[in-house]
């Protein structure tokens, strides 16, 4: 059952521990195979210089056949980055988390993709439908059917 996801996550975790994460990405918490937390920071010159965000992964039992639910943590101490594809509740509109998910991707590769998504941002702004979406968004971003209208992510 859950063994598919836990066995694969075990291997991913081992890899992270032996080889370490790419620059700017830090594993904050991986106490179980349901939820992991990463800190993500954009290196070099960018709109988000000196800012660190927390990324939360939630894994369905069928991971990696099913995509993980990934979002930025938003609470009293954490904010989501202001980005045209990131809603203020932390939900991310990125096709690799939805229709373009593939089992070849991994937790680290998702982190790297999102890091570069932030790095390539030209202008800090919220998605145009932010307020509308946030007011009725489900708790789990996977329940949202995003419309991916930008190929740059």
């Amino acid at each position: 059952m859950a063994s598919i996801s836990s066995r694969r996550l075990q291997k991913e975790l081992k890899e992270i521990k032996t080889e370490g994460c790419p620059v700017g990405i830090t594993l904050l918490e991986a106490e179980n195979f349901d939820k992991w937390l990463f800190s993500i920071e954009v290196m070099g010159e960018s709109q988000y210089q000196g800012e660190a965000y927390t990324l939360m992964f939630r894994f369905p039992p069928m991971y990696p056949i099913e995509s993980p639910a990934v979002q930025f943590v938003v609470d009293q101490t954490h904010q989501s980055p202001v980005h045209p594809h990131v809603y203020s509740n932390g939900h991310i509109c990125a096709s690799i988390l939805g229709t373009d998910w593939s089992p070849v991707l991994s937790v680290v590769s998702v982190c790297v993709t999102l890091q570069s998504m932030l790095a390539s941002c030209k202008k800090k702004e919220r998605p145009p439908d932010n307020d509308q979406y946030v007011s009725r968004a489900p708790d789990n971003p996977k329940k949202t059917r995003f419309h991916y209208d930008d190929d740059t992510v």
Binding site: I4, R7, R8, K11, E12, P64, I65, P103, V104
Partner: peptide, 13 residues
């Protein structure tokens, strides 16, 4: 069948 190590890209076994 000629590969020394086979790594499944899905389950990573």
């Amino acid at each position: 069948n000629d590969l020394r190590v086979k790594l499944c890209y899905i389950c990573r076994e």
